[in-house]
Design a protein around this nucleic acid. Structure first.
Length: 556
RNA sequence: UGCCGGGUCGUCUAAUGGUAGGACAGCGGCCUUUGGAGCCGUAUGUAGAGGUUCGAAUCCUCUCUCGGCAGCCA
């Protein structure tokens, strides 16, 4: 067992509870958490918060952490989701060792427990259909009415329950209900349903079962069976806790502690699995792993790192109050992480040809791979007479404060020379197609021979040595801060959330880039080689996040 | 208006009856061969009213306000 260090003690209110439990020896000094996803969709960043919370607790208290699939509803669950969830939890670093479990593996045990509750006179088979149950449940201010089947004998209930299990009854015709209190102010206690009849194959159990346990009945049993100490869930289950406790107490079995915390909401994104599924199914995005999706697979494809997501989880903390977390916190986390580890490279997204009138030949110039990490070394970049620079780095009629290239003005080419714009070449439409410049041989980067100072430094790529790439620029998927709260949320989708640039010119060193590799395109942002659309003859980059840009921010 | 749970800078979060602090975002400046990074500085907050106390974000009372709950979903 671990020493309580003060660092852990007040990390959040859940740590406080655990420290108290450790002090009173409530669970014999054990700490055992779990992450219990339902395999009915892909994991999103809200799940990452929960994974890091649960896994982090296990790690900090020398406890254990289980991955458990809460697969109690065959109508919504699929193996594909199980596979993606396992991959995502591992990628995030949630280490469940060999403890991967399935609620469906406990179905036999749950059935026995149900029989036990019937024998105690605390559960009964009810013949009311769904409508009738709803109508007799009462309202917010009125108590419900007791089911006419509530007083069946134990023998009759047992007989009926076994026959339910054996498939004698049709979907929805009968349920097993807990006999609690139809007048409870808490709806969850008004004789909640424990089993429903669903004649449907289960993704792991096949046709073994035609009755399936409900969440309320199953979840506490799953926790109890696994010896979980702290069963951490989100706020909407707070009203379910009395029922969680009731089942375990009346069964007189091992009783974990349910604790609720506020789920993550992120600005400009939707988090509900139902809505994410709809975006996928109706092709608003290009799959669960579309880089605009808040899914783990989406962030992975976009270029996010597990460390950044974990740091984000640390930054936002854990509390009980509903929150709408600003997306800038997440963006900070990934910038901060990539700044320290991403190789720098020059990439011109919107090329503008430059011809150096007084330059001939070819030079290999030194470029630093990462100014934040000099051990990353340097590389050679080809410098030639004809180059590409960023279209937006030239202004024929510059606005105030513009530090880059202007007619007759000078600017430094990163790692190279200072150049001066001598002449603008336009096509018949008046579009600028080329700039003719001179270079100053005294200003070679690193030579120490230059006394000249210029305000701007821009990136460039040789027009003779480069690699063509497609670059995908992403913006927020929604135009409103809290799309989940908008009724017509689909109408708030940002039509410009994806911009595809087909002929970006990138340093030729990126010929060797492989799927998933991350780079900083200097002055542009962080980019990741797309794992889906990149092929042998086509390089595709996803923009993970822009660099912080105080210039364009100022000019908004 | 039945029950449950919340309300601290713009946002997220800390305080455990004893100086309301941090991060992000913002603003100002320094520095800079990335308008990046870094560094320095700065403003902004305890929902309200009473009460207890030497002392209250914290305890009590009332009010206001936000969220959740009437699936055989989780």
């Amino acid at each position: 067992m671990l020493e309580n260090n003060t660092e852990n003690k007040f990390k959040n209110f859940i740590y406080e509870i655990i420290n108290e439990d450790l002090k009173t020896n409530k669970f014999d000094g054990r700490v055992h958490t779990r992450f219990p996803p339902e395999p009915n969709g892909y994991l999103h960043i809200g799940h990452a918060k929960s994974i890091y919370l649960n896994y982090g607790i296990a790690r900090d208290f020398n406890g254990k952490f289980n991955l458990r699939f809460d697969d109690t509803n065959p109508e919504k669950e699929e193996q594909e989701y199980v596979d993606s969830i396992v991959e995502d939890v591992k990628w995030l670093g949630g280490d469940f060792e060999d403890r991967i479990f399935f609620a469906s593996d406990y179905f036999d045990k749950m059935f026995e427990y149900a029989v036990e509750l019937i024998k105690k006179g605390k559960a009964y088979v009810c013949d009311l259909n769904a409508d009738e149950i709803r109508m007799t449940r009462g309202t917010l201010t009125e108590p419900g009415k007791e089911s006419p089947f509530r007083s069946r004998t134990i023998e009759e209930n047992l007989d009926l329950f076994y026959r339910m299990k054996n498939g004698e009854f049709s979907n929805g015709s009968k349920t097993l209900r807990a006999k609690i209190d139809m007048s409870s102010p808490n709806f969850n206690m008004r004789d909640p349903i424990m089993y429903r009849i669903v004649h449907e194959a289960h993704h792991r159990q096949g046709n073994k079962w035609c009755i399936y346990p409900t969440y309320d009945w199953a979840h506490g049993l799953e926790d109890s069976i696994e010896g979980i100490t702290h069963s951490i869930c989100t706020l909407e289950f707070e009203n379910h806790r009395p029922l969680y406790d009731w089942f375990l107490d009346n069964l007189e079995i091992y009783h974990p502690q349910q604790i609720e915390f506020a789920r993550l909401n992120l600005s400009y994104t939707v988090m509900s699995k139902r809505k994410l599924l709809q975006l996928v199914k109706e092709n608003y995005v290009d799959g669960w792993d579309d880089p605009r999706m808040p899914t783990i697979s989406g962030y992975r494809r976009r270029g996010y790192t597990p460390e950044a997501i974990r740091n984000f989880a640390e930054i936002i903390g854990v509390a009980k109050r509903d929150a709408l977390t600003d997306i800038s916190l997440l963006e900070f986390a990934i910038r901060d992480n990539l700044n320290k580890k991403a190789q720098r490279v020059m990439g011109v997204l919107r090329p503008l040809k430059i011809i150096l009138l007084n330059y001939e030949g070819l030079e290999d110039l030194d470029a630093i791979n990462n100014p934040e990490d000099l051990t990353a070394g340097s590389r050679k970049v080809k410098f030639t007479k004809e180059l590409y620079i960023e279209k937006t780095d030239f202004m024929e009629n510059p606005i105030k404060g513009f530090h880059r290239l202007i007619p007759g003005g000078e600017v430094r080419l990163r790692y190279a020379y200072i150049i001066k714009c001598e002449e603008i070449v336009k096509d018949e439409n008046g579009e600028i197609v080329e700039l003719r410049c001179s270079y100053d041989p005294e200003t070679k980067s690193g030579s120490g021979t230059s006394t000249k100072k210029v305000k701007g430094t821009i990136h460039w790529v040789s027009a003779n040595y480069f690699v063509d790439a497609e670059v995908r620029l992403y913006d927020r998927l929604f135009n409103v801060e809290n799309p989940g709260a908008v009724e017509n949320w689909l109408e708030t989708i940002n039509p410009d959330s994806l911009q595809i640039i087909r002929n970006a010119k990138i340093e030729s060193i990126l010929n060797e880039a492989r799927k998933g590799d991350r780079f900083q395109f200097e002055r542009n942002g962080y980019f990741c080689v797309d794992s889906k659309f990149t092929s042998d003859d086509k390089l595709v980059f996803n923009r993970t996040v822009t660099l912080k840009d105080s210039w364009s921010a100022k000019n908004k």
